[in-house]
Amino acid sequence: MTLRIGLAGTGRRAVEFHAPALAASPDAEFAAVWSRSTESAKALAQEYDVEAARTFGELLDKCDAVAFALPPAVQPDFASIAAKRHKPMLLERPIAGDLAGAEELARAVERAGVVSQVALMWRYSETVRLFLEQQVPGIHPAGGAGRVVSGSLAKPGVPPWRVRRGLLMDHGVDLVDLLDAALGPVVGIHARGELEGWVGLQMDHQVGKYSEGTLYATGQEGVHRADVEVFGSGGAAEVDCSEVVDADAFATLYREFAEAVQKGVSPDLDAARGLHLQHVIEAAETQVLAGD
């Protein structure tokens, strides 16, 4: 049977990526859309000829699984409701606005035993997968570095939470996740800088590996660079992540989500992974705010 997926949210990420990917997916049916803005939900639903649910509960009635495109501060509340209804869920990153919310969400998923998957979009790119699976092992990395330089926070209509916290809570999640995947779990972090400007990260990875991360919000729309490099006894390997979040990556995301739901088994990039990343990012944000 085709998996019926409901979309919760009508923001930029929903409109530009989730909705078109869901509508084009051969592995799923775009069942309905819901938003706290009724007019936005109706407009997006009309564009894709699907139903606009009047309430979140009605959305759950119309679907087998839920794709979330909500602000992180509210995602745990609605995801917990979906978990109680035993609905598999595709979650946005970060999975919550704070660590308490991430822990609440992860517990709800674990208690319900539902499939969860996090939209860590760099990891659904073929380019990034080749880097992790074919290049990194031959390097035998001892450390690495990564950077994100972005003007995305300067775009008109960017939600207030992204302007205030997006450098770390948005771009930082992807950067930490990829360095963590390449070098091993992050077990310690030191951060400095400003949340709306430049942030530097120094990370300790399990079993004696180290990395550095640089995040910079330029304030100039249209500027974007993102890359990660690892170094070791086998040399060096680098991946350019500046263009990897595209339609192909979202197609892979939805295909693998449908497969996970069919098998009834969450992938590695699940709510527990989201919770781990939330621990790291929140520790970094706390240090930046404290000026450590």
Rank of each mutant, 00 (worst) to 15 (best):
L60W: 01
Q75K: 06
P88R: 05
V115C: 05
S152N: 08
E58D: 02
V50E: 05
R162K: 11
T127G: 06
A69K: 06
V148L: 00
D98M: 07
P160S: 08
P160Q: 06
Q75H: 09
E126P: 05
E58W: 00
A82Q: 06
A100R: 00
K62I: 06
V128Q: 10
P141A: 09
A119L: 00
R129P: 00
G146R: 03
R54T: 13
R129L: 04
L105R: 03
L130W: 10
R36M: 04
L132K: 07
R85C: 01
K42Q: 13
A154Y: 02
A45R: 02
P71C: 02
P159C: 05
P141E: 08
A154M: 00
R85P: 02
S37E: 04
A145E: 14
I139E: 05
P159Q: 02
F56Q: 00
K155V: 04
K42V: 07
F56G: 00
V149T: 03
W161M: 11
I95V: 10
L90V: 07
P76A: 11
A83F: 02
Y48S: 13
E92D: 15
L132P: 01
G166T: 04
A73V: 12
A83H: 02
E133V: 12
S40Y: 15
G157H: 05
W122P: 13
R164L: 14
V136L: 11
L105Q: 11
P71A: 02
E103M: 08
A100K: 01
P156S: 04
E110D: 15
E47I: 03
Q134Y: 11
V115L: 08
R54D: 15
A65Q: 03
W122F: 15
